[in-house]
Design a protein around this nucleic acid. Structure first.
Lengths: 243, 243
DNA sequence: GCAAAAGTGTTCTCGGTACACCCATGC
DNA sequence: GCATGGGTGTACCGAGAACACTTTTGC
C-alpha cells in the first residue's frame, strides 16, 4: 500500500447551508469564524470531518458544535474540490443543506465553538470567505428546484400559519410574485392543509385564517413529489418579495 | 496548523458511471480491476485524485486512463464517505455520471490501465465491489429524473435514429411502457427533431423514417429544461422494455 | 399472403391562467 | 371612516390520456 501513501494527505470538511424564513425573508445561518484562516469573518458553519466519522454524522456534529442546532435533517448537495479553495492545503468540502423553522432554534452563542451565529437574509449576502458564495448559490438553486416539486413549507413555517405567509415563502424562494387566487386554489386543491378554524388576533386588518400541514399528506408528497406549476403572476397584482 | 495535522490523512477518489444505450438496453461501462483490493472484479472505473488536481479534471483523467474514453462531459452526482467503504483507509469518493453513444468509443483495452472494459446491461448488474452498487443506483435514479426534464437522447443515440428507437430509450430508462401515438405527438410537438426524409433499409417490415436532433433547440432545452410528462401506458398496448 | 413494425386522429378531461371586487378589523 | 390586508369565482385554453386500424416492406 506504500505507492498509495501519496494520496492519503488530504483533508475534508463539511459546510452547512441552513435556510430559514422570517420577516418575509429567506435567510441563511452564518457564524463568525474563530480560527484561521478568515478569523472573524462571517461564513457558513463548517469544519473538518474526523477520520472515523461518516459524512452525514460529521455534518450534524459540526452544525451542533458551531451553532447549537440539533436534530436537523441535513441533505448532501455537492462537493467542492478546487485545489486552491483552502489556503491550508488540499481540503475538499461536502456541502449540506437544510430547512428549519427559525423560531425552533434559540441560538445560544455561549455553548459552542463559534463566537456568534446569526440569521442573515440571503439577498443581502454578497461576500463570504473560501468558495462559500458559490456553495450558497448552488444550494439556493437546489431550494428553488425543490419548492416546485416537493412541499417545503412545513420545514420553514411555524406550526400555524396563514395562506398569505405561505405564499410569501414561495415568493421569497422563487423570487417572483404569484397570483393570490391561483395560489390558494392550487394549494387548497392538494388537500395538504388543515383549516384550524382559528384566526389571527390583534392585526390591524381583517384577521386571516390559520392552517397547519396535514402530516400524513405531507410525508406522502415528500416521498412522491408533486408538480407545483407556478408561473409568475402577470400584470398589476404582483406582490413584492418582502411582506 | 499542527492541530489540524490529524485531519490531513485522508484520500479521495472519483468513480464514473457512464451510461450508454445499445441493443434496446441501457448499459453502463465497467472495468476489470488490476489492483488491490478486489483485483479481477468488475467495478466502476474509478481511481485516486491527485493532490494538485481538481475533481472534475480527475474524473476525466481517470476515465481516460481506465477505459480510453476522452472528451466526455462528466457531471458530479454525489459523494460517498462511509468510514468502512474502502479497506485501505479513509477514502471518500465523488461519483460522476455521463451519457455517451456506445458506438463513438471503440474501447481499446491495450492502451489503458485496466485489463478490460465492457458495456454491461444495467438490469443484469447485481454485484459490484465497494459501495458501487449504491453509487450505480443513485446515478440511475438521477438519470430517471433527468429524462423527464431534459432531453437525453442526443447523448445516447446515434446521429440518425427512428422514433421507435427513441421511444425504446425512454422506456429503458423509465422502466415502463409508453403509448406510441402519444409519445410521437409529444416529441414531435417540441420541434426538437429534424425529419431527414430518409428511411431505414434492409428491414423485414415497413422501413421507418430517420430523424436527427436539432442542435440549437437541443441546447435550449438542456439549458431551460422541459416537462416530459410521460405516464406509463395503460391497457394492452404496452411495449416491453427490451425491443 | 403473412409476419412485423411503422404510422396516424379524435374525443374527453383536467389543470393552469387571467382577472376585480367586497369583507373584517384596528385605529 | 379609512387604511390594511383577507378572502372569493368564472371563463378560456392547452396539454395529457385513452384508444384501433391501415400501410409498407422482406421473405
Amino acid at each position: 500500500m506504500n505507492h498509495l501513501d501519496q494520496y492519503f494527505k488530504s483533508a475534508f470538511t463539511v459546510d452547512n447551508v441552513i435556510f430559514g424564513f422570517g420577516e418575509g425573508d429567506l435567510k441563511v445561518l452564518l457564524i463568525k469564524r474563530l480560527e484561521e484562516p478568515f478569523t472573524d469573518r462571517w461564513a457558513l458553519p463548517g469544519y473538518f470531518v474526523r477520520q472515523d466519522e461518516n459524512l452525514d454524522h460529521a455534518a450534524q456534529r459540526v452544525l451542533r458544535e458551531l451553532t447549537g442546532l440539533t436534530n436537523v435533517y441535513l441533505e448532501q448537495v455537492q462537493t467542492f474540490g478546487a485545489t486552491d479553495r483552502h489556503p491550508s492545503g488540499r481540503v475538499i468540502t461536502v456541502a449540506y443543506f437544510s430547512l428549519v423553522k427559525i423560531d425552533d432554534f434559540a441560538l445560544d452563542p455561549t455553548h459552542h465553538m463559534s463566537e456568534e451565529a446569526r440569521w442573515v437574509s440571503v439577498a443581502k449576502i454578497d461576500d463570504l470567505p473560501f468558495d462559500h458564495m458559490e456553495i450558497l448559490k448552488i444550494c439556493f438553486e437546489r431550494l428553488k428546484r425543490r419548492v416546485r416539486v416537493q412541499p417545503v413549507g412545513f420545514e420553514l413555517l411555524p406550526p400555524k400559519f396563514t395562506l398569505t405567509e405561505l405564499q410569501h415563502l414561495y415568493e421569497a424562494i422563487l423570487e417572483t410574485g404569484l397570483d393570490k387566487r391561483n395560489f390558494r386554489k392550487k394549494i387548497l386543491s392538494m388537500n395538504l392543509l388543515i383549516d384550524l378554524d382559528e384566526t389571527q388576533e390583534g392585526v390591524a386588518h381583517r384577521p386571516a385564517r390559520l392552517y397547519q400541514f396535514d402530516q400524513e399528506k405531507y410525508l406522502g408528497f415528500l416521498k412522491d413529489g408533486f408538480n407545483f406549476e407556478v408561473k409568475e403572476s402577470k400584470r398589476k397584482e404582483r406582490i413584492p418579495a418582502n411582506s
